[in-house]
Nucleic acid binder design. Structure first.
Lengths: 300, 300
DNA sequence: GAGTATTCTTAAGTGCAACTGACTGTTGGG
DNA sequence: CCCAACAGTCAGTTGCACTTAAGAATACTC
């Protein structure tokens, strides 16, 4: 009988690429991982790893084992979830990955509700970009991810993830307050000469924002670049830049900035994803329900 | 994470009814079984066994676990079976880097043969220039590269790569059809005043083509420059340029262009390279064999 | 090209966990 | 009532999984 613990190591190796990476992820020493995988190799009697430079690569035989390991782990997780949902008290730990503006806007209320209504559930929160958060949730580093999706920009598809829309979020052109600076375009077309602040290249937000400007007929002068939307706000409010910002960033604070509706009223989609196999875990179901309520609280 | 070994004990208990029976079946002492099941109970934090007379019965929670255990064991068994059968059939993934004209001329047939004869082998194909493709194959980004080499032009040497010639490919002077334009040189020497289309500077093809012109006694007027050989074809067929083109570009399409043999009948060499270490992998051996057949199909 | 950093491997040692065996307690059948 | 069958407990032993440490091969860097 194959040892699932060892198979899991093999699977993590496929995901992370190096024994050292597996060891770090699972809090082992690299040599422990090496020894366990050697043992697995002896168990099955087939070469599973081949050294390749200073790393190792999985042989086709190993790939076969890994593909089934995924299903084994899924089944085990489903078993745990069903067991938990057969009980009356809701308990356990839920690790949540959130992107910044959701962390600021939604999570405080959601955590407060969880604390008061499900004190037995421990919620851990990590701030992370949507793309890596989805991958890590799939890889079991998180149980639930709150991610965003910009119009016309499909998020990476993970068939094993159960995705559900949390809310949508209008994106508007934010311009400085009337008494600050010289940047007061009345529409996005008029903002062609303005200094822009956008997120770094490679993000979905940046891609969408540039496309929006091009559709409006100009190439934006991106003078400021930061992933921190709070910095965007400050740059706009201080009269230094204009920006395309989703409504959620204004939650919990007023603003002196002026917000202009864009043509076609573009909406950012905010959604949650969990692994299929854990989607029935009561603690996870609870977190999702609470998130829905928290969103209605802040967004009306 | 649930321990499959212990789940298995629980399942055997359901089947056999007594701890003693499980112990006998699995060659344990009864106390070992008892201890392991107590441990499982502690792991999941739910009562799994209840004494009933002098035996024990499974709680509903235990039944839930058992029902999933069956699937886990089934999956593990399937994994072992597939692993065993993979030792006789050829499986795995082969990542192939190909330059454009081979991708168009050879790969479609090769992929079709692979699909029908080795359905278990997944072939991934990326279009790439020979030079970077060789480097990346060496660096393990690809498993197999199809590259070209122009006469008198050594390809970069990678001692760790196993190189094998796939075919050779006559290079001819391609001139517009008789009814198009004014460019109808009868030989390369007569093409000294013609407008030329060549690949960009820095490519082996460009270097060889310029050398060929100089050997014929003139400096070519390179008016058009593109890496895309399909564009070369269009420029020639539309009467705008002449070009030095290998035969492979005409595969799968007729042409109205006129093709003239060059002096000394220069041949481009097309070869495959794989890392020494992987050269015996059955899937790679199969791809190479199929490429040979595909070449004979298209090139006669 | 030398030095440095990664990465995997192997060896030796350690601690925990799983197993055995003896014993106890409980139950049901004869 | 007594014995057989069974589960659970405890003490003791064994084995395995882990750690640290040293070593070799490879890749990066200045």
């Amino acid at each position: 009988m194959l040892d699932v613990r060892r198979l899991r190591l093999l699977r993590e190796l496929q995901l992370r690429g190096t024994l050292a990476g597996v060891a770090e992820a699972l809090n082992f020493s690299p040599s422990a991982v090496s020894q366990q995988l050697s043992q697995l190799e002896k168990d099955v009697g087939v070469e599973l790893l081949r050294s390749s430079g200073r790393r190792v690569v999985l042989t086709p035989a190993a790939e076969i084992l890994v593909s089934h390991t995924a299903e084994v782990l899924r089944t085990l997780e489903r078993a745990e979830a069903e067991l938990a949902s057969s009980l009356t008290t809701i308990t356990g730990t839920v690790r949540v990955a959130v992107f910044q503006s959701a962390a600021l806007a939604i999570m405080p209320d959601a955590l407060a509700i969880m604390e008061s209504e499900y004190p037995e559930v421990r919620v851990e929160m990590v701030q992370r970009e949507p793309e890596s958060a989805l991958r890590e949730t799939w890889a079991r580093d998180f149980d639930l991810v709150i991610a965003e999706q910009y119009p016309g920009h499909a998020a990476p598809r993970h068939p094993e993830l159960d995705r559900r829309t949390l809310t949508t979020d209008a994106i508007r052109l934010a311009t400085p307050p009337a008494d600050r600076g010289r940047l007061h375009p009345a529409s996005i077309e008029r903002a062609s000469d303005a200094a822009w602040v956008m997120e770094p290249r490679g993000t979905a937000s940046r891609h969408w924002a540039e496309q929006a400007c091009r559709r409006a007929g100009f190439e934006p002068d991106v003078r400021f670049e930061t992933a921190d939307l709070q910095s965007h706000i400050r740059l706009v409010e201080s009269g230094n830049a204009v920006a395309l910002l989703p409504d959620l960033v204004w939650i919990g604070r007023g603003t002196s900035a002026q917000l202009l509706l864009l043509p076609e009223n573009p909406q950012r989609t905010i959604f949650t994803s969990v692994r299929e196999a854990s989607s029935t875990r009561p603690a996870i179901v609870a977190v999702r329900a609470v998130l829905d309520r928290a969103v209605r609280l802040v967004a009306g």
